[in-house]
Computed example of a mutant assay.
Amino acid sequence: MSKPLYKVSFLNAGKVYELYARSVTSGALWGFTEIRELVFDVNAGVVVDPTEERLRDEFGDTRVLHLPMQSIVRIEEVEKRGSATIRDAGSGEKVVTPFPVPGKPR
């Protein structure tokens, strides 16, 4: 039997982050939830999701993520992994980082 897979949604800087992990437990630190074994898509293909890439850059080397209980929106046990996303907390729309265009000021 394989380890369970969890979809963890939490608030961070006015945005809702959705990550996938293999382990979610009550932490040793009171009031915190421990998220371990984060799962990211390891695509070898040409198409790269910029949001997934951003989350992998931010959390790729994280051993344990300690989240305050009040920042957690939802924890779901899921059958298969979807895409990790960042959404606007107010509208629920995906936050998309535009692709930089050469010569165009930011």
Rank of each mutant, 00 (worst) to 15 (best):
Asn12Val: 10
Arg87Phe: 02
Leu65Thr: 01
Glu52Thr: 04
Gly45Ile: 01
His66Tyr: 05
Arg54His: 11
Val101Trp: 01
Leu67Asn: 04
Ser71His: 13
Asp41Gly: 07
Glu77Tyr: 05
Leu65Ala: 11
Val96Glu: 14
Val42Asn: 11
Met69Phe: 01
Val42His: 12
Tyr20Glu: 10
Ser91Leu: 00
Ser23Cys: 09
Gly82Ala: 06
Ala84His: 06
Ser9Ile: 08
Gly45Met: 06
Lys94Pro: 09
Thr33Val: 15
Ile72Leu: 13
Thr97Pro: 05
Glu79Met: 11
Ile72Ala: 08
Val46Arg: 13
Tyr20Ala: 08
Ser23Thr: 10
Val95Tyr: 03
Ser26Ile: 05
Gly90Asn: 13
Leu38Ala: 03
Asp41Lys: 08
Pro102His: 01
Ala13Pro: 00
Ser83Arg: 14
Lys104Trp: 00
Val95Lys: 07
Arg22Thr: 04
Ser71Thr: 15
Arg87Ala: 14
Leu38Pro: 04
Pro50Lys: 00
Ser83Tyr: 04
Tyr6Asn: 10
Glu76Gln: 13
Gly31Trp: 08
Trp30Val: 09
Glu37Gly: 07
Gly27Arg: 06
Gly27Ala: 14
Glu93Val: 02
Asn12His: 14
Glu37Tyr: 01
Pro100Glu: 10
Gln70His: 15
Glu93Ser: 03
Arg54Ile: 08
Ser83Gly: 12
Val24Leu: 05
Phe10Ser: 09
Met69Thr: 11
Ile35Cys: 04
Ser71Cys: 11
Tyr6Asp: 10
His66Gln: 13
Glu77Ser: 13
Ser83Glu: 09
Glu58Trp: 05
Thr85Val: 14
Tyr17Lys: 09
Val101Asn: 06
Arg81Trp: 04
Ile86Met: 05
Pro102Met: 01
Ser23Trp: 04
Trp30Gln: 12
Gly92Ser: 08
Arg106Pro: 05
Arg81Asn: 02
Glu58Ala: 15
Thr62Asp: 01
Ser83Asp: 01
Tyr6Leu: 03
Ser9Gln: 15
Glu79Leu: 13
Leu67Arg: 01
Leu65Cys: 11
